[in-house]
Design a protein around this nucleic acid. Structure first.
Length: 909
RNA sequence: GGGAGUUUAGCUCAGUUGGUUUAGAGCAUCUGCCUUACAAGCAGAGGGUCACAGGUUCGAGCCCUGUAACUCCCA
């Protein structure tokens, strides 16, 4: 067979993915094997594959493929999230493009458009995951608004309401004026902004002249002010407390009050209190029984609604409908015109913004549904304990603290959203808008309605008026926070809520690993743990692996707006999926951000190419094997020649050694390190050393046994690498031996033998000799083609005899002799404790040899000195552990011996 | 403001309960090679006061205290 010059990934990737699918290798059904389950964090249904997904899913694929090869029943569940806000925003934008306003549609009509959009664009991302080789069980694909899933979410809500954990209340919420919905605290991102502090004076109402000056970043809320507050200990204002001042522009008379809450050294030490537009002000307002006057509407525009009882002038009327940020400047100017703006200064502050729309959040008093988190956690102590006690393990561990800290300071969760795309809140109201029932269906709600009536009217009256009591209930218009459905994910993908105690949930739950970003530790991870303990009385997963954020070369977060996020599909086309997987995995330890650099993909592609060429080399030997048998032959130069047997023995041990190491690393989730170790095993040990050692001379045959061993090693290497780079490894596995009966994808890992340390250290010696002698050749400018005669002065000729044939070939030595004395007129070098004399035709350059040896000598003398110092220290000798002491003594003896050898060598040069 | 973490070669990172050769790897750099698998390659080399200042110890990259810079989370 003719193999291409370089590895060409495109065709083979398609071929193998199809083959794996056709054979159902990714499909999982419960059986007698141990399950190994991962539920994929469901991407937004409208999402497209980006670097973060690629990293995240590559990691999951590595874990799941490894488990599959370890004989476990590997099940990786795909799916998508309906992503309420994000998707609704996209649908609204799409409608706008078609000239349709959301407000012109009924809920039903809007949802029809949304589903149409979902069917068309939803799940593109799942197709893209196939390109990077993800071995997901596609038959299990789940969507968070599938009928069963939807039903489960509703049932969960009803039950939690019944348990008193979900409640409805008028609270200050985070309001997103762009999408006109409430948000949870977790959806608010704080950002640093350059703003201004406006120093506004409120004149005393008694006309005594003067006033009190407050510093505010938000003059646009001034018309909602109901008090001025100072710290009671603040000497400057003590006499002011109890006085009244007048609010600029509207001339409302408000009191000056005192409360510890105010910090005396911020601004002027006086705070304006606006209960309708600030959380803390709202607290103050409640404490002192102050009215909350709302002056901003749902879109963040000025509204007169709450001011109608007051004297409103034309200026105030002109504010109606003006956007908050425009209003800020306008009002500052108007206050200035009244002579009440003392000054403005620059100020670096923070504002909350919406995670989805980026809009600046308003605190707004609003009637919403909440979950009482403290109550929930108190009833399920395992939620906090499981992580604290490491029943659920976090990688890296530091996130354990983050989790605990959040748990300790948990706030109620606002779960209602003023959106249509999502699970509609199962609350029912009567014609007056009063809440009648929380129930999964209208029928249930009506039943409850009648029960309540019966209770209120009495049986008799109820029966009489039954006919006239038409319920006329309507459902809450709002829908639930997306995360209120995703928190059921690991349970409901196996129908654990909709069909409890079914065989699947029993088998697959709890899952083994969750791989996700630390950003959603509160949004999702913590809440899944809650749901797990509440509904299954069991943790949802054993391990959580937190990936880092993918950043560009300059450390900037990848984002659409910066345009620094490369097109993944293009990268896959250019480098191949295996190379992309390699590139993204090679430098991404758990929890660390990864700096994405295309050169890492090049490294991956080069690695592919290296393996491809190794394959070509091995295939060249296939037709030229010989049955020389196990005996050694005389190669005519007085050296024994084992035809590669020793090399094969060495590599077998090296392979075992590294395989054990890789196992250990993977058990600790050190994926990146494991890949590095495999990379080096293949490139350095296998290609650079082993293949060169067993490589026959030009057009010479290779020992059949060695050839077969080599094919076996190569296959094992592919098996070791397969979870990381599935495509090329499967391809090479099949090309190495044509007509294989099995596929690497499901090949089971065998048990590993402990390596023989003697062989391994001999291998190290061999490498050192070759490197050392090549260095000498380089430094003395001996051309690769020129042969040398090698004389070795050693006490251990036996070890050398076994490997001399190998290093002779590698350093192009025509002959090897063992001597007892220095060889005159040769280049001298010291490797380990042995002296090597190199005879060449070239004139000798003794200066460079001397320099090298002297440098080495200096280093050894310095080293010896430090060891001697240690050993000369009585306290060390008394206190150090015996094995440490013995080691230091050995170091000393070794150094002294080496120094002696080098000194001797220097004498004869 | 509260909390967590990081600081080791030009870059990205390893460095296990303190002792294994006066600190390791990959990439990048430099030198020499078109050697019949691979120039997307081969062979070799150089490069670090382990952020800084103290301390504990016979012994510190690792433990303690302080300082500085950076990052993340929370308010």
């Amino acid at each position: 067979m003719e193999l291409s010059k370089n590895f060409e990934p495109q065709a083979i990737e398609l071929k193998w993915y199809k083959h794996w699918m056709e054979n159902g290798y990714f499909k999982s059904v419960p059986d007698g094997r141990e399950p190994y389950t991962i539920v994929m964090p469901p991407p937004n249904v409208t999402g497209v594959l980006h670097m973060g997904h690629c990293l995240n899913n590559t990691i999951q694929d590595i874990l799941i493929r490894r488990a599959r090869m370890q004989g476990k029943n590997a099940c990786w569940v795909p799916g998508t999230d309906h992503a309420s806000i994000a998707t609704e925003a996209k649908v609204v934008a799409m409608l706008r493009e078609r000239g349709i306003a959301k407000s012109s549609l009924s809920r039903q009509e809007f949802l029809e458009y949304a589903w149409e959009w979902k069917e068309k664009y939803g799940g593109i991302i799942l197709e893209q995951l196939k390109k990077i080789g993800c071995s997901l069980d596609w038959e299990r694909t789940t969507f968070t608004m599938d009928p069963d899933y939807y039903k489960s979410v509703i049932e969960t809500f009803v039950k939690l309401h019944k348990d008193g954990i979900i409640y409805r209340g008028l609270r200050m919420v985070n309001w997103d004026p762009a999408s006109k919905t409430a948000l949870s605290d977790e959806e608010v991102i704080f950002k640093d902004v350059d703003s201004k502090l406006y120093y506004v004076t409120y004149p005393f109402a008694d006309g005594s002249g003067g006033g009190i000056t407050v510093a505010t970043t938000r003059p646009e809320t001034i018309l909602g002010d109901v008090a001025i507050c100072v710290n009671p200990a603040d000497e400057r204002y003590k006499s002011f407390v109890g006085k009244e001042v007048s609010v600029p522009i509207i001339n409302r008379i408000i009191p000056i009050i005192a409360d510890e809450y105010v910090t005396a050294d911020f601004g002027t030490g006086a705070l304006k209190v606006t209960p309708a537009h600030d959380k803390n002000d709202n607290e103050l307002g409640r404490k002192y029984n102050l009215k909350a006057l709302n002056t901003l509407d749902a879109e963040g525009k000025f509204t007169l609604q709450d001011l109608e009882d007051e004297l409103i002038n034309d200026l105030i009327i002109s504010y109606a409908g003006v956007d908050r940020f425009v209003l800020r400047k306008k009002m500052a100017a108007d206050i200035d015109a009244e002579g009440l703006l003392e000054k403005t200064t620059d100020y670096k502050g923070q504002v909350g913004t919406s995670e989805r729309t980026g809009a600046v959040i308003e605190s707004r008093l609003s009637l919403q549904w909440f979950m009482d988190m403290k109550k929930l956690i108190a009833a399920n102590t395992e939620i906090a304990a499981a992580v604290a006690e490491e029943k659920i393990k976090f990688y890296p561990q530091k996130f354990k603290n983050t989790y605990s800290h959040w748990m300790d300071n948990i706030k109620d969760w606002c779960i209602s959203r003023q959106l249509w795309w999502g699970q509609q809140i199962p609350a029912w109201y009567d014609a007056n808008g009063d809440l009648v029932a929380v129930a999964a269906s209208k029928e249930d709600a009506e039943k409850i309605y009648f029960e309540k009536l019966k209770l209120a009217l009495g049986e008799e009256q109820f029966q009489v008026n039954k006919e006239n009591l038409i319920p006329n209930l309507f459902q809450d218009e709002d829908c639930l926070d997306t995360w209120f459905s995703s928190w059921l994910w690991p349970i409901e993908v196996f129908k654990g809520i909709s069909h409890p105690a079914n065989a699947e949930i029993k088998y697959y739950y709890p899952t083994q690993n969750l791989v996700t970003a630390p950003e959603i530790i509160f949004f999702w991870v913590a809440r899944m743990i809650m749901a797990g303990y509440m509904y299954k009385n069991e943790m949802p997963f054993e391990n959580v692996y937190f990936t880092g954020i993918v950043r560009d070369k300059q450390g900037r977060k990848m984002s659409k707006s910066l345009g620094n996020s490369p097109d993944l599909l293009e990268l896959i086309d250019k480098y191949g999926a295996d190379a992309v997987r390699f590139g993204i995995m090679i430098a991404s330890p758990a929890g660390n951000d990864i700096l994405f650099d295309e050169s890492a993909l090049e490294q991956g592609r080069n690695f592919n190419n290296k393996m491809w060429n190794a394959l070509k080399l091995v295939k060249m030997w296939e037709e030229r094997t010989t049955n020389g048998g196990q005996h050694t032959t005389d190669n005519g130069q007085g050296r024994t020649d084992d035809n590669g047997q020793w090399s094969a023995l060495w590599f077998e041990n090296r392979l075992n050694e590294v395989s054990l190491e890789v196992n250990e690393l993977l058990n600790q989730f050190k994926l990146s390190e494991a890949l590095k170790v495999i990379y080096s095993l293949i490139w350095d040990d296998f290609c650079s050393w082993y293949l060169e050692w067993v490589k026959p001379g030009f057009e010479q045959p290779i020992e059949k046994a060695v050839y077969e061993k080599t094919v076996g090693f190569f296959s094992s290497l592919m098996q070791l690498l397969h979870p990381f780079m599935p495509f090329i490894t499967e391809e090479i596995y099949h090309l190495l031996v044509e007509e294989r009966a099995d596929d690497l994808c499901i090949k089971q890992n065998g048990s590993l033998d402990l390596p023989n340390s003697k062989i391994l250290s001999e291998g190290e010696l061999l490498k050192n000799i070759i490197s050392g002698l090549r260095d000498v050749r380089n430094k003395n400018q001996i051309k690769p083609k020129e042969t040398i005669k090698l004389h070795i002065q050693t006490h251990d000729a036996a070890t050398y005899k076994a490997i001399e044939n190998i290093f002779a070939k590698q350093v192009n030595a025509a002959s090897i002799h063992y001597v007892n004395d220095a060889v005159a007129g040769s280049i001298t070098t010291v490797i380990g404790k042995d002296k090597f004399f190199i005879e060449t035709e070239l004139p000798l350059n003794t200066t460079s040899q001397k320099e090298t040896l002297q440098k080495e000598l200096l280093h050894l003398q310095g080293f010896l000195l430090s060891v001697q110092k240690k050993l000369g220290n009585e306290k060390f000798v008394q206190n150090a552990r015996p094995d440490v002491l013995a080691l230091e003594q050995k170091k000393k003896a070794d150094a002294e011996e080496k120094i002696k050898i080098i000194e001797e060598s220097l004498l004869v040069i």
